[in-house]
Amino acid sequence: MILNVNDINVYYGSFHVLWNISLSVNECEIVAVLGPNGAGKTTLLNTIMGLVPNKDGLIKFKDKVINNLKTFERVSLGISLVPEGKRIFPELTVLENLIAGSYINRKERGKMLEIVFTLFPILNERKNQLASTLSGGEQQMLAIGRALMMNPRLLLLDEISAGLAPKICEKVFGTIKKLAEDRSILIVDQNVKNVLEIADRIYVLREGRIVLHNYAESITEEDIIEAFFGVTL
């Protein structure tokens, strides 16, 4: 088990956002967290990264408790997040963005750059352009490439299909599947179909609670709809 989230509760002020959440990710596995808007999926990823504090419960990465570590400390252990909204550095070039991504992995910079440019050739073409001049899809690819530069053991992906054209979406998801050969992936997305095609295990989060947890191949369409809406069909 590379990531173990055990019974965490998260509050925004007095608002109880996540209720007793437990989940796990194993080596070289793709785990998906699905759910309607406002369910708390982004909050969950942000909590794992330490951008949001959790009250009680434990978060363990590679069997090490990381609850009390600051975000940058967790990152240096080998967890990387592609955040919602991409958050690329607008006034750095594509190449500089990727170099920023290699901040804690300087030795492998050359090797990882090659991997990223092979996965996303367009980034190589535009490597000296300012990141803010890229299209939405290209920025998403840059955000993923940047997160890969540190060669993480666990890659968290937050809503990477948002605003992407369907063709590019398929391409990106295909790339994700390939990446899982060497690392674990925890993906959060609203686009159920694309995610189901690549995930090994699924959690469905609704109103801050896990309402469904199963292997992707065992899940039916009814299961998902019921989990999303909270009604039995």
Partner: peptide, 17 residues
């Protein structure tokens, strides 16, 4: 809630699997 268009709106597509 069984309506195909509604499912598409919430889940991203009407045929999920």
């Amino acid at each position: 809630i069984r309506d195909v268009k509604v499912i598409e709106t919430y889940l991203g597509s009407s045929v999920i699997i």
